[in-house]
């Protein structure tokens, strides 16, 4: 599966059961990127994608096949690591309070290669960085 996650400077995702931040330009970019593919979300993320062609499933990380995208806001993903072949990070370039963090280690370049990085202006964020990591196990 291809994982999509939004992170702050400390790899945070949530604080007090709420997303750290949101930006309509990120949502639009996700929809553009996943057009023609299946995009899984869970019920928590549904308000961000109202009226859009997405698949809502609480067990998306088990259901998604290799080419499907999963937008994850409030789930730990490390236990599904062997099913994840691509990670798309949207970085807020901001520091928010966090108590729930991204738990997949993609820092080992022997396993995860940064394929592309793009910076763009958000609706409410000065600069958002989108990074795409491809799984490339060279061990």
């Amino acid at each position: 599966m291809k994982l999509i996650v939004c992170l702050d400077d400390k790899n945070g995702m949530l604080f007090n059961h709420r997303r750290q931040s949101r930006d309509q330009n990120v949502t639009a970019d996700i929809l553009a990127m996943t057009a023609g593919s299946r995009l899984y979300i869970n019920a928590y993320s549904a308000p961000l994608f109202e009226g859009q062609a997405v698949t809502v499933a609480e067990d998306m990380l088990s259901l998604a096949n290799e080419e499907d995208y999963c937008f994850v806001e409030n789930l730990h993903v490390a236990e599904y690591a062997d099913r994840i072949k691509e990670v798309i990070l949207y970085k807020w370039n901001r520091r928010y309070p966090g108590d729930f963090f991204f738990d997949l280690d993609i820092t080992d370049p022997r396993q995860w290669q940064l394929s592309s990085a793009v910076k763009f202006a958000g609706n409410s964020h000065e600069t958002i960085t989108k990074e795409r990591y491809i799984y490339a196990d060279k061990n």
Binding site: R22, W92, H125
Partner: peptide
């Protein structure tokens, strides 16, 4: 303090 201020500011702006 700043992380909380950031969170509030960006939420209001968005």
């Amino acid at each position: 303090m700043l992380p909380f201020e950031n969170m509030v500011a960006d939420y209001v702006k968005e």
